[in-house]
């Protein structure tokens, strides 16, 4: 589902239906084949800091945006965010939190750790699809990424 040269969005999401609904929303905008999905926090960290066993690590892929859920198995989203923003090599990559949590402590912690945006997933699928596709549009087309 991914082409190695075209990873522009890293989606870190453990819930398969949410993954599917997100990809469906991207598909409507033709972003779907540029998305790589990490199923937990450990895999996301492996993507960036792994020992080379990760299939995409060696070619130095830098996604244009990371969509990060907070509640993740193994390593949670805030920890992934902290590690990404603490490392010189990954600090510049925009990270958008995409989560169900509207809890103030989560929002505050995310911004304190350097999140670039915080989106609460709407229950309404149409609103959700709209939100996801707008995020994709903004970060892939409108935003000028660091080189």
């Amino acid at each position: 589902m991914t082409n190695q040269q075209q990873v522009e969005i890293l989606l870190v999401e453990d819930n398969p239906t949410d993954v599917e609904l997100t990809l469906r929303a991207f598909k409507a905008r033709n972003f779907a084949n540029q998305v790589f999905v990490a199923r937990d926090g450990a895999e996301a960290l492996d993507f960036f800091f792994g020992d080379g066993s990760h299939p995409l690590r060696d070619i130095g892929v830098v996604p244009k945006v990371v969509l990060l859920d907070l509640k993740l198995p193994k390593v949670d989203g805030l920890e992934v965010l902290r590690r990404l923003k603490a490392d010189e090599r990954t600090r510049a990559i925009p990270v958008v939190i995409l989560t169900s949590s509207r809890e103030e402590p989560d929002i505050a912690a995310a911004y304190r750790l350097g999140a670039n945006s915080y989106i609460v997933k709407p229950v309404d699928f149409e609103a959700f699809a709209r939100a996801v596709s707008e995020v994709g549009l903004y970060w892939l087309l409108l935003n000028e990424p660091p080189r």
Partner: peptide, 22 residues
């Protein structure tokens, strides 16, 4: 509890709504 409600109860709702739309 509130965190679970917020996060975990809404995710399946989104699935129900999403796949109904599908």
């Amino acid at each position: 509890f509130a965190y679970s409600v917020s996060h975990d109860l809404r995710a399946p709702l989104r699935s129900i709504d999403g796949f109904s739309q599908v």
